[in-house]
């Protein structure tokens, strides 16, 4: 039988559905009878879901793209210069 400390160690695996079947069942059984661990799991789940809502748009402006492409052009020209 898993204790509460074990549950906190397996909480992420449980939420990510990565635990083996029997371990998952043991966690579920513990959660049926332990309100503190239920709270812990719910809080961890809420934390992970809140993070998912912070997703940032990583697209960049045309100006930034131009700047990088120009930097690369210059770098290319320097690489192509014959060594003296």
């Amino acid at each position: 039988m898993l204790n509460c400390k074990d549950i906190t160690k397996k909480a992420n695996g449980y939420l990510d559905k990565e635990l083996p079947y029997f371990t998952r069942l043991q966690v579920k059984l513990h959660l049926l009878v332990c309100v503190h661990c239920q709270r812990y799991i719910n809080q961890l789940r809420a934390t992970i879901r809140a993070l998912g809502k912070l997703k940032k748009d990583t697209s960049v402006s045309g100006q930034v793209i131009d700047d990088i492409v120009n930097t690369l052009k210059h770098a290319r020209q320097n690489l192509d210069k014959p060594e003296k």
Partner: peptide
């Protein structure tokens, strides 16, 4: 015995939103 002696507190805000 590995049971909570200081359990997680109740959160006022507990949903992701």
């Amino acid at each position: 015995r590995g049971h909570w002696s200081s359990p997680p507190s109740i959160w006022h805000a507990e949903t992701p939103d």
